[in-house]
Write a protein that binds this DNA or RNA. Structure first.
Lengths: 242, 242
DNA sequence: AAATATTTATGAACATGTTCATTTTTACTT
DNA sequence: AAGTAAAAATGAACATGTTCATAAATATTT
């Protein structure tokens, strides 16, 4: 009786569920099957019935583990980002680096990890644009993953040997987060071979940031600097209050 | 026989259809009804069946005039942009203006015209993010409206009294187009009263551009300038080849 | 005016994401 | 081991965007 009670409470307390083997296994199978199909056919082209059939389960079962079709993609994306975080932690521990280099490496790595899934990740891009969609990276449901990103970017900035004005350094990760959103958006649309265009774009934007940081303390750049800081504040306010 | 032949060909040649009164009328009714419902209930909440019922027609009839639910929104959006173009032509004819002022007015006007439809215009924002969606402003199906925008922005830039390096002046409208996309995206997500945040954001970004233009010919700004030009080229290449 | 062709309209049928009442399986208690 | 409670699974039913074969209305030709 008591044991039972405890277990039940445990369920409600820790979100992650899955204390039972069976369910975890089923969930994993659904996920794997879905990814296979998404990769082979695309997101829109894959039906939930197909997934269920191939996974050898009933249609409704999928919905026990995933709130929607989109959430299948989101959860996978989060998993990849988790790996990215780990990798980044390792990288920033290595020998001193210029911020530009650190950022490029970070973005490149991300592209590389997502490359094979580009096709269906556009489903997320679409969701991103709809504010009220629970899957949107701007919404409150994605706060967790946003924090994750911010953490990574802050680490990259703080651990670089590039000297930055404290005020700017504090806001930079936010700016970079939006930059990253933009780059991913660009990348999703990018049909060039092996996403070379996105790589190029990354180089150029990172260079722009580098150039800016080089001059951002000079008197003549105060206007630019202040405008930029304001813009960042505005951007953040939208994401934070949604 | 000859007349008939001509008419038939005429149909194929000019896209705009609707040489017949009845059809034009029906189309207009569908459009109006749809907008009413979208405004009252929202885009996702309104069903095609509701529209048909309220318009007093059959469900299938809507699809004679609009390829999809989203296209209802797109066509309306295009109509508004048409008006905007007219208004802008008038504005740029007026007394000399600083580019910043011209841009702000342009963006403000746009917000104002779209304000009452913000709720359902997010449907377009969502479509925008999906490259293969025929309704996306980045896709080839929207070339027309993109050109329209570019035209407006070029007019605003060229007619302003602000002096700009020719190389920059040529690329500036492209940059501004992307800025506009960004601002509209921001605006769609913006839940502040009367979209004051978007106005603020507009001010700040336009100011940034102004500040940049003030220094963009100075030797120390050549790095920034070149990076920016490259970024624009990259952005454009994505849109143009899709 | 009759015949024909074209345009416009219809609504049942379809596809697919999602929900939910019901059943089966699993875990726990006595 | 039997009984019970919880978890997991099921698939029919639902909602809704879209299609399509068919019919009605309209315009054109003879």
């Amino acid at each position: 009786m008591l044991t039972h009670q405890k277990l039940k409470e445990g369920y409600k307390e820790n979100q992650d569920m899955g204390n039972y083997k069976k369910s975890e296994q089923t969930k994993a199978i659904v996920m794997e099957t879905a990814l296979e199909l998404f990769r082979a056919e695309g997101f829109a082209e894959t039906t939930m019935r197909q997934i269920a059939k191939k996974a050898g389960i009933a249609l409704g079962t999928i919905y026990i583990y995933f709130k929607s079709k989109e959430e299948l993609v989101l959860e996978y994306y989060q998993k990849v980002q988790q790996e990215l975080l780990l990798q980044t932690s390792v990288d920033t521990q290595k020998k001193p680096y210029r911020l530009e280099v650190g950022l490029k490496d970070f973005f490149y790595l991300q592209f590389k990890m997502l490359e094979k899934d580009k096709k269906f990740l556009s489903a997320l891009a679409s969701a991103a644009a709809t504010p009220d969609n629970p899957v949107s990276p701007f919404g409150k449901e994605s706060k967790h993953i946003r924090k994750l990103h911010m953490e990574m970017l802050k680490k990259i900035v703080d651990n670089s040997k590039t000297k930055i004005h404290p005020k700017v350094q504090k806001e930079l990760p936010e700016l970079l987060w939006f930059l990253q959103m933009g780059l991913i958006f660009f990348w999703v649309h990018d049909k060039s071979k092996e996403s070379v265009k996105s790589i190029e774009m990354t180089d150029t934007t990172v260079e722009l940031i580098g150039t800016f940081l080089k001059i951002h303390n000079k008197p003549f750049a105060s206007g630019l600097r202040n405008s930029l800081l304001k813009i960042i504040k505005n951007l953040v306010s939208i994401v934070d209050e949604t």
